[in-house]
Amino acid sequence: MLLDFDKLGAWKWALSAICAVMALFLLLPILFIVALSFGSSRWLIFPPPGWTLKWYEELFADPRWIGAALTSAKIGVIVMVFSVALGLLASLALVRGTFRGRAVLRAFFLTPMVLPVVIVAVALYAAFLRLGLNGTLPGFVIAHLIVALPFAIITISGALETFDPSIEDAAILCGASPWEARLRVTLPGIRHGLFSAAIFSFLISWDEVVLAIFMASPSLQTLPVKVWTTLRQDLTPVIAAASTLLVALTVILMIVAALIRKGKSE
């Protein structure tokens, strides 16, 4: 390698220190929130004067918080299913297809990634106003699918590109019809990519707040929206507890995704 870490001498320590500072900088606010969620003070004082679980009790006793969490989970799961299914079909066409204009189509599929989310949100809001989809579950799902799908396509296309099409050909000569070959050989062959796409699609929906604020109605809102609206009314540590749970699930799923990637490379 051009830059060998072990041969950097004194720079090695400098680099390590910079990395540590960066990590702290990124992690501190989250650690702060987690600490506050267990703190006994009502006023989000740091460091907390004592420790308690009462904010969590309050959180779980409030049907509005539970409802928001369930809504988030429900939307996340539906987005995940559609994102993986559509991402798989799109990837099959983009990677295995031979039609003209594949590169253009691919770029088109990925545009939501580079467009500012607010613009997507405003556009969707205007469109959904006519369709009557604002504040509905399908509205949420479609909005989140738009931002989740590019990630699913990138992940699944990547897996498909490294899967040798000759393996599929071999299955076909063995007597499997082209769709049977894809189902029984290609899909299991790219399952790591499918799992990663599923986890990321879920997380994108689970954490998403901008689109969700536009889509939300008083009766239907996701956890991040609930955190946001509560924050504007009342600075209670219950928000810290809800945020901690939100982050906890994200971290767990990220670890699962990392483990899948590690399992694949072994």
């Binding site: 000759s166 393996i167 071999a170 076909i172 000569l173």
Partner: peptide
């Protein structure tokens, strides 16, 4: 006759065993 009904055997240049089986 489509490929999968030709009942022909083939060994490829590249390794084509199904990796998950």
């Amino acid at each position: 006759t489509p490929s999968h009904k030709r009942n022909i055997g083939m060994v490829f240049q590249r390794y084509t065993l199904f990796p998950h089986l």
